[in-house]
Design a binder for these strands. Structure first.
Lengths: 154, 154
DNA sequence: AAGGATTACCTCGCACACGATCTAATCGTG
DNA sequence: CACGATTAGATCGTGTGCGAGGTAATCCTT
């Protein structure tokens, strides 16, 4: 019964270590562009869609406003994006690529393949791993919400 | 050929999201103890060994001195550990549990099982996942060192 | 024995993550 | 229409995570 638990904790550490290890590769690859990994994730979204909102980015990247707001401010300071209040809903802030932000796409074009080679797993493993990882993400997020949700249940 | 790369990048994001999601469960569980997840990892090591050094913790947790030094300082400020220079090698700092630190073990005894339930994967999946995660960690760390190692190669 | 490497550790600075708290705009209901 | 609730976003404080740089102790080679 309780033999299961230490295994799970070890898995969580492996997850933590793997995530940092992968980020360290991104750091090396993105440093010449002056981007961090979370910043790169925002750029990836915008390179596909050209415009988004803070709220959409929050949901897509599963990050909070308090992480993304300063991050977007830094991207704006670097001249890669612009932020504008939406006329139709003044609460909403649109995030738009600048010309410079759009051009950076080519400079980052080599990153995906470099990452693919760095992690060194074949496509079959990737697909399997993705399935389990997403299950864990959903399950853990639900449990965290449930456990901390007592105050919200008032 | 290049169809592989976007898949790998997606996997990295899933890794990043899963790691944060799992940490959020730990946060809820550890908050009553006043511990963060990395602090808990240090305590786990000490609960097994009762004494360690900063260097040993650096290697075991795959973190750097610049992360662990302040963390250990905070654990010491909370009265959970003590740090002492080793008499036989004054460069080395021994990290030892205090009585309070030792007692906390019982208060954290429920955590492993709670985590096991939260991530919601069975033992078979855990074992497989661990294998792939460790492979990724090693492979990515090696590549990051290789790519950034040009200055070290001087 | 001397002096340059190496080791173990620390501090600083910056960029996340995230809980807590705030503001302003919009929505929904009476 | 009014007003409380909700929504979108920002700010602050704390704790990592890590590059860069510093110091003291030990080792190693001559």
């Amino acid at each position: 019964m309780e033999a299961k638990s230490p295994l799970a904790e070890l898995l969580c550490f492996d997850l933590y270590a793997a995530s940092r290890s992968v980020t360290s590769v991104y750091r090396v690859l993105l440093d010449p562009l002056g981007l961090t990994y979370p910043q790169y994730l925002v750029m990836l979204v915008l390179w596909r869609r050209d415009e988004s909102t803070v709220r959409a980015l929050v949901e897509e990247l599963q990050l909070d406003y308090n992480t993304l707001s300063p991050l977007l401010k830094r991207l704006e300071a670097r001249g890669l994006v612009e932020r504008r209040r939406r006329p139709d809903d003044e609460r909403s802030v649109a995030v738009v690529l600048t010309a410079e932000g759009r051009e950076m796409r080519e400079q980052a074009a080599h990153v995906p393949q470099a990452i693919g080679e760095a992690i060194g797993v074949d496509e079959t493993e990737i697909a399997e791993l993705q399935g389990v990882l997403r299950k864990i993400t959903v399950s853990a997020a639900a449990r965290a919400a449930e456990l901390s949700g007592r105050k919200a249940a008032i």
